[in-house]
């Protein structure tokens, strides 16, 4: 187990390094740099622009910039923002906190709702109810995320019951909570269809298993049936999905944040992408990648804990069987 964990962590580190190199290469592909836009300002001479490029080292070759960046990662700075002139770490950190506040809440809420809907649909004797939920989810899935967020925002303006965008006017908890409602609802609505679909499928699959049928036939009370047999059996595919959810904590909410004006990673990243504030983009990519890799790792560990078969089936397969 420990050895497996070490191996995975090593893998993760290698992956992150590869992603950072890949990001730098990708960023190099798009034409123009941060200073390009200064060329349109009639008040700024080309000499000033090139002096700026030299100061920030953006005219240096790619490998030089990459190694400089790696060095600054070791210092905990993750490079510096070309636009803001401050270390990327200090720029992104408060925003990452805001994003995590939003997405963690949304993750909990959407899993809660998805499980409740899934159980209700699978347990209900009425097939129509299951179909209704499935239909509703399909409809929701069929609406672009951007549109869901926009329409929610519009409703907020029209009804005046929720604040329109932003995070808080004061530092009070209640105020933050009221600002959270809209973006959380938007995120739940956009992630729910996929989750609910998988939960429902997993539950139906496990309900159809012979031993559950047998348990049911034996008259085991529904509460015990669900919590002791059905849900644990259905956990397997759901855990991987949960891993994906964790992996998406920093990236799933970007557009919703931009539309709803949530002061998270989304707005700053979008601006950085278009203004070629490269170190900010790389920094944000790396943090999201970290979550993605960790999400997968967490999911695998949970699988490992939940399902003994996995130990033989998947990982140490090659080593142990030979």
């Amino acid at each position: 187990m420990i050895r497996y964990l070490w191996r995975r962590i090593l893998h993760a580190a290698a992956i992150l390094l590869l992603i950072s190199a890949g990001s730098f290469a990708f960023l190099e592909l798009a034409p123009g740099d941060y200073a390009t836009a200064m060329r349109l300002d009639p008040g700024i001479s080309p000499a000033t622009v090139s002096a700026w490029r030299t100061r920030y080292g953006v005219d240096r070759p790619l490998p030089v910039r990459y190694f400089r960046w790696l060095r600054s990662v070791l210092r905990g700075e993750f490079g510096f923002s070309l636009a803001y002139g401050i270390p990327v770490g200090s720029l992104l950190w408060p925003r990452i906190r805001n994003t995590l506040l939003l997405t963690t809440l949304a993750l909990v809420a959407s899993w809660f709702v998805a499980l409740a809907l899934g159980v209700a649909a699978a347990a209900g004797s009425q097939r129509a109810f299951g179909n209704l939920i499935r239909g509703g989810m399909s409809l929701l899935h069929a609406i672009p995320d951007v549109l869901i967020a926009l329409v929610l925002l519009l409703l907020a303006v029209r009804t005046g019951s929720f604040p329109v965008g932003g995070m808080a006017e004061t530092a009070r908890v209640g105020d933050v909570a009221s600002h959270l409602v809209l973006p959380v609802v938007a995120l739940v609505l956009t992630s729910l269809p996929v989750l609910a679909r998988h939960v429902q499928a997993a539950l139906q699959e496990s309900l159809a298993l012979p031993f559950i049928q047998a348990a049911r036939a034996h008259g085991i009370p529904p509460g015990r049936l669900w919590f002791a047999y059905v849900l644990p059996t259905a956990a397997n595919p759901l855990i991987s999905l949960f891993g994906y959810s964790i992996g998406g904590l920093l990236s799933a909410s970007l557009l919703v944040e931009v539309i709803m004006g949530w002061p998270g990673l989304g707005p700053v990243l979008l601006e950085a992408i278009f203004s070629r504030d490269i170190y900010v983009v790389v920094g944000a990519t790396m943090v999201s990648a970290l979550f993605l890799v960790m999400g997968n790792l967490v999911a695998d560990l949970m699988l490992y804990a939940a399902d003994p078969r996995i130990r033989w089936e998947q990982y140490p397969r090659i080593r142990y069987r030979k």
């Binding site: 893998h11 798009a30 992996g247 992408i273 790389v282 990519t285 990648a289 993605l292």
Partner: peptide, 18 residues
């Protein structure tokens, strides 16, 4: 599988812009 992880994480929007 690792390539998959990497490709999910890369800033693909730059590839599209480029």
């Amino acid at each position: 599988m690792r390539l998959g992880e990497i490709s999910l994480a890369l800033p693909w929007i730059y590839l599209l812009l480029a």
